[in-house]
Amino acid sequence: MKIFKNKTFISVLYLILAFSLGFCIFACSVFSTLRFTLFNSGFLSDTLNQTDYYTDLCDEITDSLMDIGDASGLDKSFFEDFVDEVLVRKDVQSYVDAFYSGSKLEVDSSNFEDALRTALEQYEDENGLDESDFSEENVDYFVEEASKIYVQNVEINYFPMIQKTVMKYTSKLNVYITVTAIITLAILLILIFTNKWKHIAVRYIYYGTASAGLFMLIIPTAVFLSGVINKITILTRSLNDMYTACIQSVFMVILIVAVVLIVISAMLWILHNILRKRVSN
């Protein structure tokens, strides 16, 4: 096997291995980032808590309820302090949990409806309204419509449509992460154990790590510098806050991983020089 003694051929072979190592590190890092961010219920819940999502959502529900109140003979003040943030938080959290656990996505609006009926009865008493001032049927319809508004706002629309895909890829991502991690490890072992001189092995590992780090750096840098996140057009403040925060966090994680990879590669460079000096000596 004369070819394996050819120095150029061996170098090319190792460069290909280093490239594969870089690509696997990159893929493994991206899959892991996705798995622990977008495909993780804790990440979404934390984002909702960190942004003003609940406060904005309560305001939006209140505004919509006031609109329907304007067509239903109710004073604006009726809905002013009606929406209960604690209930909204509980219902949104249940919805997010159901989304990530693969359960049926539905909002239980019974607590909201009960509170609304109680408030309506109180309103009738306070304003001296009797049965001649309303029909039960129309009040029921009002409660039904108000409840729809509540449910539509609590639901994160289109989540039902992507739920199956998220479930499917959550398990697939675990496999992808494992496979890329195993390949990465295998290439590392090949590089280490097939090189007599360890500084050469370290150099090829450096190539892989540094190229993966640089590649990962490109994406978030391009996104942050282009300001594309601030250009996203989402028409409700609550969702806008949530999605921009989610996207920012994901790219920030990618950026951090990229920086870590670059720091590791810098350390490998130093290690390479130390090992090389030892060999020279």
Binding site: V30, S64, A71, Y158, I162, V250
Partner: peptide, 28 residues
């Protein structure tokens, strides 16, 4: 109905996810 808007913008949001995943270059 009343002019009440029950609007949220998931249409956009979903696309944002799609673009995000595309940028990440994931095979999914």
């Amino acid at each position: 109905t009343t002019g009440a808007q029950q609007s949220v913008a998931p249409y956009v949001a979903v696309s944002v996810f799609a673009v995000l995943l595309s940028f990440a270059g994931a095979g999914v």
